[in-house]
Amino acid sequence: MTWTSYRNRGEILRTVIATADARRDGLLPWDLDGVAESFGDELNLLGALQLRWHTRLAGRIERELMARPMAFEAAVVDAWRATAAELPGIRAIVDHHRAEPLDEQMAAAMDKATAKERILLAVMAGQASAHDSGAAAVGARIEEKARAGWVLAPVPDEPTGHTGLHASILGRLRAVRAAFAA
């Protein structure tokens, strides 16, 4: 992959994420210009979105644990909720394709990604090691706890007229404001 195609792919991924955040329907925005050419198939696009989710979640968990080093589970739960609020479109896509994969290959990939995420949650909450056979089940319990208190901000009805970075920042501020108002 050349530097230009790498940069284009990154820009297309940002557009995919913005579109997913606006739609929140759980469907891959395959209809966008350049998506098919950059990602090849739905599984590759889903993998890129899953990777974005996972890295953002891991980073958020680290920050939460630095701020509250003795509140392991609470920090992990809050980090999951904050990441889901920040990336609602990706969360919707991941949840949709976890429940309704397009084929067996996607089902296997989603099962593996789900297990890895749940193991991360359990390990970072201090309740399992990465090699514990029950770590994914512990992580599933933590994920359920995070989902139980997760409030998804409503999709804005009117366009802001802003684009790019400003739209992202405004969208995040509106999501935070809506979360605290609920």
Rank of each mutant, 00 (worst) to 15 (best):
L46K: 03
L51I: 03
P69L: 08
L170W: 07
A79V: 00
A175I: 00
A18I: 05
A130W: 14
H97C: 08
I142C: 06
T114S: 15
T163V: 12
G171W: 11
V16I: 08
K145S: 13
A146N: 02
A146I: 04
H162E: 11
P154I: 09
L32E: 05
P101D: 06
L45E: 03
W80H: 07
A128D: 04
L170I: 01
P88S: 04
V138P: 08
A182N: 09
G26T: 12
N8W: 01
E143I: 01
A122K: 07
S5I: 05
I61T: 04
A67G: 01
G89H: 04
T2I: 03
R63K: 13
E11D: 12
R63Y: 02
G89Q: 03
L65H: 07
R14Q: 06
L13E: 03
L65V: 09
E11A: 14
S168N: 02
F39N: 00
G26L: 10
D78F: 06
S133M: 10
R14P: 00
R7M: 10
D41T: 04
A136N: 09
G40S: 08
D95N: 10
A107W: 08
K112H: 15
I61L: 09
A36H: 10
L121K: 09
R177K: 14
A135E: 05
A146P: 13
P88R: 05
R118Q: 14
L170A: 06
E42K: 12
V155A: 13
A115M: 14
R147T: 00
G34V: 02
V35R: 06
S38G: 07
A92S: 15
